[in-house]
Design a protein around this nucleic acid. Structure first.
Ligand SMILES: [Mn+2]
Ligand SMILES: [Mn+2]
Ligand SMILES: [Zn+2]
Ligand SMILES: [Zn+2]
Lengths: 156, 156
DNA sequence: CTCTAATAGATACTTCATTTCAGTTGTAAT
DNA sequence: ATTACAACTGAAATGAAGTATCTATTAGAG
C-alpha cells in the first residue's frame, strides 16, 4: 500500500498542519517519484508548476514531512540530504543507483540483532544504524551513465 | 598494525606527493586522535601548531589522504564529511558516539554476501555499501553527554 | 464571514567548500 | 651546494547549501 499525495495531505491536516497549494505541489513532486531527490531538484520540479514557489518552503515542507516520518532521508554516495517518500512503513534501508537516483527499499534487515552483540563488546549504548547500498540500476548499466560525478569516497 | 604519522609521511612521498610542514601537522592531528574529526576541527587543532595554516590546505590534504585510502570518511548522525585515520586496512565499518565523536572499528561485515543476493533480486550492479552504527559510548552514557564536539550546535 | 495562528516568500546572512592566482618551497637532478 | 620546476601554500573571490528574520497573506476553525 503506497501513500499517495492526497492521503498524505490528510495526514498533514490530522496533525494540525495547513494544506497550502505550495505544500500540495511539493508533496506531489516527492510522492510521484521513485528516485532520490535533493531539496534543489524538488524545488526545480515544484517550480514547473508554480514558478514563484520559494526555496524556503521546500525546506520547511521537508522538515514537516520528516517530523511526521513520511519521508526517508538518504545519504547516498557523495550527496547527503536527499529525500524520497517513505514506502514501507517498517524499518528498512535503501539500494540507490548512483547513475539516476532510483531507489529500492530493502526490508529484511538483520542488523538489529547484531547491535546487541556489538553493544556488549563495545560498551556503547547503540541507538541505531545507517545502511545503504549503492550501485547502478539495470538501465544505467546499459546506458553507460557517468552523469553523476561522485566526489570523495566514503568509508565502507 | 597501526599507521603512524611518520609512516604515512613515507607513503605520501612514495606516491609522489611532497611532504610539507603543513601536511605533516594535519597528518599528526588526524593520526593522533581516536575521534571523528570535521575538517573544521582539524583546522582548529592544526592551527594550534601553525596559526597561519590555511583552511584550503586542510581540504587538499584530506583529498590526498582519501585518494591514498589513508583515512575513513564517515557520515555520522547529522553531520556528514568527518574523517579519521584508517586503522584496519581491510574492509570495515564504524560505531560512532553521538556524544563525543569516538569511533570504534567493526571488522566483521557480512554484507558483501548479501549484496550478491540483492543484486539478483534487484537487477542492480551493486558497487558497495555504507554502514554505520551510532549511539553513546560508556563515558557519554554516564556523563549525560554534552553535544558532539563538532563545532557549533548539532541540535535540530 | 470573521478571526487568527500558521504559513509564504523576499531578503539578508551564515557556514562550508571550491576556484583562482601569485608567490613559495620540497626535492630531484645537476 | 646550486639550480630548476612542478607541487604546494594562503589570501581572496566565488559558489553552493541552508538558516533567520520580517511583513503580508491565507487556510481553516468557529
Ligand atoms: Mn524508504
Ligand atoms: Mn576506520
Ligand atoms: Zn540508474
Ligand atoms: Zn562518547
Amino acid at each position: 500500500m503506497r501513500l499517495t499525495a492526497n492521503r498524505i495531505a490528510g495526514i498533514l491536516r490530522e496533525n494540525g498542519y495547513k494544506l497550502t497549494p505550495q505544500r500540495h505541489i511539493v508533496l506531489k513532486v516527492i510522492a510521484s517519484s521513485n528516485d532520490l531527490l535533493t531539496p534543489d531538484s524538488i524545488l526545480e520540479k515544484s517550480r514547473q508548476e508554480d514558478p514563484s514557489l520559494g526555496r524556503v518552503t521546500v525546506y520547511r515542507t521537508l522538515e514537516v514531512l520528516n517530523k511526521l516520518s513520511l519521508v526517508c532521508k538518504v545519504h547516498s554516495e557523495g550527496r547527503c540530504g536527499s529525500y524520497m517518500m517513505k514506502r514501507p512503513t517498517e524499518h528498512h534501508h535503501h539500494l540507490v543507483c548512483s547513475g539516476c537516483g532510483k531507489a529500492v527499499d530493502i526490508t529484511n534487515c538483520s542488523l538489529i540483532d547484531i547491535e546487541k552483540k556489538l553493544s556488549q563488546e563495545s560498551g556503547f549504548e547503540i541507538k541505531g544504524h545507517l545502511l545503504e547500498f549503492y550501485g547502478l540500476c539495470h538501465d544505467c548499466v546499459e546506458n553507460t551513465p557517468t552523469i553523476h560525478s561522485n566526489k570523495g569516497g566514503t568509508s565502507r
